[in-house]
Nucleic acid binder design. Sequence first.
RNA 1: GGGCGUUUAGCUCAGUGGUAGAGCGCUGUCCUCACACGACAGAGGCCGCUGGUUCGAUUCCAGCAACGCCCACCA
Length: 716
Amino acid sequence: MLDTRYDHKNLEEKIYKLWEKSGFFNPDKLLNKKAKPFTIIMPPPNANGALHMGHAVGMTLQDIMVRWNRMRGKKTLWLPGADHAGFETQVVFDKKLEKESRDRRTIPRDELYREIWNFTQKNKEIMYAQTKKLGASCDWSRETFTLDPRIIDIVYGTFEKLYKDGLVYRDLKVVNWCPKHKTALSDLEVKYAERTDPLYYIKYGPLTLATVRPETKFGDTALAVNPKDRRYKNFIGKTIEARGVLGSLKFRVIADAAVDPKFGTGVIKVTPAHDAADFEIWARHKDEIAGPKAVIDENGRLNENTGEFKGLKVAEARGAVAAKMKEIGILEKMEPNYVHQVATCYKCGSTLEPLPKPQWFVKMKPLAEPAIKALKAKKFQILPKRSEKVYLHWLKNIRDWNISRQITWGIRIPAWFHEPKCIPKIGHEKDVIKCKEIIVSPKEPKCEFCDAKYVQDPDVFDTWFSSGQWPYATLQIRGSDFKNFYPTDVMETGYDILFFWVARMVMLGIYRTGKSPFKTVYLHGLVRDKDRQKMSKSRGNVVDPLGVADLYGTDAVRMALTVGNTAGNDIVISEDKIRGYRNFATKIWNIARFVMMNEVKSGTKPKFTASDRKNLANLKKIKAQITKHLERFEFHLAAEKIYHYIWHEFADKIIEAAKPRLKSENNPDKAAAYKTIETLLTESIKMLHPFMPYVTEEIYQNLPNRSKETLMIENW
RNA sequence: GGGCGUUUAGCUCAGUGGUAGAGCGCUGUCCUCACACGACAGAGGCCGCUGGUUCGAUUCCAGCAACGCCCACCA
């Protein structure tokens, strides 16, 4: 006889092992080879820490879909993995180094790489153990790390193809430079913050202009006005003489439509080295004005082009330069409270320094077009539906993607630069002009014409460039998986990475395979604490999903994360809610206990009453409703309905009504009462299994007559 | 400057063109032999505001307000 309490602590591990041993996590074990596939590629968690509640939400929803489809007889593959998470992991590891008073830039590359490798492998194992504890029924035989050599091969192949197709190029642009992390970032990794700064009005000879960044004036190469601005019509094309902080200067006044006549005085200074917009203005007027002249270095300090200000940090230099301007009488006025948006690093919040740097860029328009078409042609859908508009808007306005990162951790870019010295091979003295400056190749190239070495680009890819290829890459590295499981059915992930990851998977997936990598994208919300705060390590409000699972059982945590959780909306988690579903686990456990206690051994032929038949028919109706909810990705409604049915219909009404009949002597009526609740129990735990797999499986294992090895493979 | 979301019971959230739901909390009675992590009974909501459509709106439409989020090279 079962105990009065379901003992999750001692049973969960045992049950998971039972599932693993059964082999049914692997779709190849399925006997029906003609079964339709159902595939989910698990978003690989970053191997730089433990799983958090957000992961638990994703794992739960994915496992619900996977278990349900497996029970429906589909050839179900859920492929797990882990992400090396380039920049994110580098940041975590840099902090660790900082605590040990070490600096990544002074550690030999190979050594540092090995250290971080070991760090991620350790984290990976912890994460996998946590994933198992959450009950995830994924196929561990296909587990893949994003730095698997076979994956890197595919990523390199994509880069080479993009290069050949002219969709990847190296160019000098003003990029988002984080002076703390000392790397460029993509536009998506920029977080704009509102700041209140002084707006300085500075005299440039006869003209006055407004700027918040007087410290960059040493890099000015021109002044610009709007071509339609009548006030300055006579200045266009002229050169004006101005008194500068370091002596007198001459600037040409150019006309460019990008200048807003309503801002400040309608005149701006053009500083191509330290402002992306100015850089583009220069690009349009290359023959008229000088190009980027850097005055700020990678550490965010003024360089040798700034005279006495050399070595000052940008923030310090600003006031110092302004003071000097005031002293020499070129500071006309200052508005102290100018509110504007400043680009900051999404990780550390440092003000980003726009710096001119040669980087690798992906040309996005040609990749975005098919991704837009695919959605419009309903090749895939995004839930919630409203995020489709967000997706389309982003793709329509997409800009080229900087995929170079100046860090160690990641997949090194397979590009090689020709050494400066060029000693021709004998007989090729005239050919050396044909030596290629850059060669894209996974292996070190040799020059045909000279003995120069090629040196590999020290930079690594933006992680999202490789994880953007995850669905097809993970399937292409193994036998006939690609043929059997691609395109996948569902991509389940958080809405916060719609652009970072989902859109890029669609673009790269279509580019390499011709097909969208998935049919449905389901975006879940962010998990918040009871005060609606976003959970984060820096806030210190993270609830460890494994900790509460230890307390109340994984099933309770999963159920609490499912009920009330709708696509695209944030979810608030509280211990009270989890405790409530722990009570539900106990309830279903005791229902099972009651049914088993009242077992009527077969022998007496049951005589079903009208209400027995009604109850059995009603169950089918409920099940059809649950099925419909699951088909529509309404996990919250399905979970709530099952909960309500089991507790308030099955237990409260049907079982209560059956009690007197079960107390009578052995007869056809008693047999019918038993048979009815036995059937309802079996069906209930089947319906509940995708949501609360452990307790239902344990009940199933104790059932007097079960037909399958595990509940996991019962027929839905 | 664009776009989006939310506003329903004390709290956190589901839901619906026609008597309003869940978890936790609250009140009362029961330690009745499945379950006190329980049973039964109950209190508690002008379903943000204003207009419109409709026989009828919390649900559809428009406007407004509050809170929140995303996107954006106005220096």
